[in-house]
Amino acid sequence: MPWIDACSTTDIDEEDLIRWDHAGQTFAIYHSPDGDFFATAGLCTHENVHLCDGLVMGNLIECPKHNGQFDYRTGEAMRAPVCVNLKTYPVKVDGDRVFVEVA
């Protein structure tokens, strides 16, 4: 699987996320309060809303439309109305760049 250069580490505030579009797909890239980076599918599994407008609280991302929550480290659905887990993608940091391994 290819590692794709997605963004700079400084593009995302701590405890926040950005949207990243690549090859016709949309992703969300997170900067955790611990300084780590994670990537998931960009759309909520409930109703295809972009998660980039949502709120990161610790290790959770809250969907901006219905307040469903996922653990963005694992993709696990944590709060209704989301029931289906979010797809996650491996991330690595090289220097000041964030790379995502896109399936």
Binding site: H46, E47, K65, H66, A80, P81
Partner: peptide, 10 residues
């Protein structure tokens, strides 16, 4: 009603 309200917002 949690679900009906989700639909109300969508």
């Amino acid at each position: 009603w949690r679900w009906s309200h989700a639909r109300h917002h969508s």
